[in-house]
């Protein structure tokens, strides 16, 4: 397993090309092209702003203003997470031609999916930054240095899960549909449109065993809440857990690898 893990480095050029291909192909033929990557999150932010200032102004405590910005801090990384998982569950089947007909390292496919979605996440960040500036949120530049760490933890965790899902979906096709529902449930079980403090005390324990809670809380503390980044302990612990998930995911993937060419 570790020998094939070591090979991953050699696929850098391949991964890079495929990510670029993925991004290019996604908006090929649309008039605005890459701008959609900006517009989609921007439009989303406008919708949330409208709903939570005009329609449901009392859904949150006053200390959480601007609430749309708060939600945006969570929704942006969540979108990266959930679309990565949804797409990676299908990625080996969609790339079946490559696996069956060409000598092709299959693990590249889920990695490419996660990375391509990460690029979309990055393209959403300027929108977030613009609104942070617009609302003149107090941002501690030192805390911002944690942002790459948070992103890295999320990347490792997501890739590990993507390995699991892509490999298992080859054998259990309905995992794809199951996953859609699980992700919806997971979205509401994660403090994204509410904060951990708003949850009832007896729910906290449940929220704490959800790894996404700690990622979202980290984003929110760094980008939204004032005060120091107290959640860093949880984040680092999650980082260690993510590495375990990554290795376990890769292990499962590697074990099932030989079946792909026959089952896809």
């Amino acid at each position: 397993m570790f020998s094939s893990l070591a090979k991953l480095g050699r696929y850098r050029a391949l991964i890079q090309t495929l990510v670029v291909r993925d991004l290019k192909a996604r908006y090929r033929g649309s008039v605005l092209g890459f701008f959609w990557s900006f517009f989609n999150p921007a439009l989303l932010l406008f919708i949330y702003t409208f709903v939570f200032t005009k329609v449901l102004p009392s859904s949150h405590p006053a200390s959480m203003e601007p609430f749309a910005l708060f939600m945006f801090c969570g929704i942006l990384p969540w979108t990266w997470f959930s679309s990565s998982l949804l797409e990676s569950s299908n990625t080996l089947i969609a790339g079946g031609n490559l696996i069956k007909k060409v000598l092709f390292p299959a693990e590249v496919l889920p990695i490419v999916t996660v990375l391509a979605n990460m690029v979309h996440f990055f393209l959403g960040l300027p929108i977030l930054a613009a609104f942070v500036l617009y609302y003149q949120r107090p941002i501690d530049p030192v805390e911002l240095l944690w942002l790459p760490v948070i992103v890295l933890v999320q990347l490792i965790l997501t890739t590990g899960l993507a390995f699991f899902l892509s490999a298992l979906t080859v054998h259990f096709r309905d995992l794809k549909d199951l996953l859609g529902n699980i992700l919806t449930l997971w979205f509401f079980a994660t403090p994204i449109i509410y904060s951990v403090d708003m949850a009832p005390a007896d729910m906290r324990w449940w929220l704490n065993i959800n790894p996404m809670t700690h990622l979202m809380r980290s984003y929110q503390e760094v980008l939204f809440f004032e005060g120091s980044f107290d959640h860093r302990g949880w984040l680092l612990a999650l980082g260690v857990g993510s590495v375990v998930v990554f290795l376990a995911g890769y292990f499962v993937f590697d074990r099932l690898r030989d079946s792909f060419a026959e089952e896809v």
Binding site: A13, T17, R21, K24, A25, R28, G29, N97, V102
Partner: peptide, 19 residues
């Protein structure tokens, strides 16, 4: 195998070659 239909032959040559 591995050609992407939406992008040009030129880019596909590069991607395919790297694959």
């Amino acid at each position: 195998a591995g050609f992407h239909p939406e992008i040009s032959g030129r880019e596909n040559i590069f991607i395919n070659g790297i694959m």
